[in-house]
């Protein structure tokens, strides 16, 4: 089991009191593609960040189990975490603009990522970087390698991020809203690319998104989160027959091109769900 989370609770202390954001989440992930879907404030990103120990120190994290490939994250040292983060698990964020260094060429940044994990000469690293860029289906990898982050489009930037994450051959890829800043046409390409790479290399994928139908196309399983709880976990192909009223509500309240509705059904939240 690559990831094993049991009864994860995340809370924040503030001046006005204690705020529990994640309230007992359990998830398991092998070499498969799991989508975590929820609205803002559902705790989906926090869950993924807790797994990589990327939350601020004043966060209170409790769990019965929080493991990455058998390593207990709760007691892992910062040194141990560094061998996991970026090496065994890659993290792709929403906006590549903020993740790339603006004053270095794209190629040198990918090369650097490769060298940190694999060593070797600068020249070899740059060649490897161009290979990686080719792998993420960039048509002219040499040209892109020589350009700066502001010279490439959002979709291209996200491909570069993926290439950097692939450098150390990670076992797990965590993608937190990787395409919500991108256009619809690019969004589909990037998600397809991620799905293909993950399947080819036998990696695990944790895809975090707010878009339930979209995620279902690129994942094997989907966990639906609401207010810090997992409402329902089901096979992506079973989404249309989802049982939980929240999942059904989320699907129903979306406007649809093919099935026009006079009025959109409004999601009514039942406090019972949180018990």
């Amino acid at each position: 089991m690559l990831v094993d989370i049991q009864n994860l609770k995340i809370g924040f202390k503030s001046r006005t009191g204690f705020h529990q954001a994640v309230k007992g989440v359990s998830l398991k992930l092998g070499t498969e593609k799991l989508g975590i879907v929820g609205e803002s404030g559902s705790g989906k990103s926090l869950t993924a960040r807790a797994l990589m120990k990327l939350l601020p120190t004043q966060t209170v994290i409790e769990a019965d189990k929080l493991e990455f490939d058998g390593i207990d994250i709760r007691s892992a040292s910062e040194k141990q975490m560094r061998t996991i983060r970026g090496k065994r698990a890659g993290f792709i964020l929403q906006d590549p603009k903020y993740s790339l260094n603006p004053v270095k060429t794209v190629g040198s940044q990918v090369a650097e990522a490769w060298r940190t994990h694999k060593g070797g000469s600068k020249r070899a690293a740059l060649e490897a970087a161009i290979n990686l860029l080719e792998m993420v289906k960039i048509r002219d990898p040499k040209k892109v390698a020589a350009s700066y982050p502001h010279e490439v489009s959002g979709g291209m930037g996200q491909r570069v991020m993926i290439a950097m994450m692939l450098a150390p051959d990670p076992e797990l890829l965590i993608a937190d809203e990787p395409t919500s800043a991108l256009d619809a046409t690019v969004q589909a390409e990037i998600l397809r690319l991620i799905e293909e790479l993950v399947s080819e290399r036998g990696m695990g994928l944790l895809l975090i998104s707010h878009d339930l139908p979209l995620v279902s196309h690129f994942c094997d399983r989907v966990a639906v989160m609401y207010a810090g709880h997992v409402m329902e976990e089901l096979k992506a192909s079973d989404l249309l027959s989802a049982q939980h009223p929240y999942t059904r509500g989320l699907l129903n309240c979306m406007p649809s091109l093919m099935h026009p509705k006079e009025r959109l059904p409004v999601l009514t939240r039942d406090p019972e769900w949180l018990k």
């Binding site: 619809a184 589909a188 339930l212 979209l214 992506a236 699907l251 091109l257």
Partner: peptide, 26 residues
């Protein structure tokens, strides 16, 4: 017409097919 697919431009067609394909669950 958009719903029925009576569109002429390639870009419209692309946007429409993406919408049809991805905005419904798998």
């Amino acid at each position: 017409d958009l719903r029925l697919g009576n569109v002429n431009h390639a870009h419209t067609r692309e946007l429409r097919s993406l919408s049809v394909e991805l905005e419904e669950p798998a």
